[in-house]
């Protein structure tokens, strides 16, 4: 199998994840885009591990580490999402503008409700 096949799969999954992160409004759907991007990186790690055949197995070990980091990330992110839902009543990321520019913050947060 040519090495670029799994690398192509990783690249396509990564760009789909980029689209998901940029285009989705719901915070949970944004997180799904992040998961796709992390999986694309894992595909690359595993492909290069099979290519290099190093005794250290760095590729597969780092894929495991990325999976663990993704689990930690999703746990924290869901705690944040639930907190945002309790304080704002919605999780639409394009309406969470409290940290953005100071222009008319009150009207915007009222309109968001």
């Amino acid at each position: 199998m040519p090495l670029w096949w799994p690398l192509l799969l990783g690249s396509l999954l990564f760009s789909i994840g980029v689209y998901g992160v940029l285009a989705r409004r719901n915070a949970v759907l944004v997180l799904m885009g992040v998961e796709l991007m992390l999986n694309a990186v894992n595909v690359n790690f595993v492909a290069f591990d099979a290519h290099l055949r190093s005794a250290v197995h760095g590729g597969q070990t780092f894929a495991l580490f990325v999976i663990v980091i993704a689990a930690a990330e999703i746990g924290l992110a869901l705690a944040i999402v639930l907190l945002v839902f309790r304080t704002h009543g919605h999780i639409e990321v394009d309406e969470l503008r409290e940290l953005g520019e100071a222009a008319e913050p009150a009207e915007r947060s009222e309109a968001a409700r």
Partner: peptide, 9 residues
């Protein structure tokens, strides 16, 4: 991953 010889992953 299974096809790329990464069974445990």
């Amino acid at each position: 991953f299974l096809l790329l010889a990464a069974e445990f992953v």
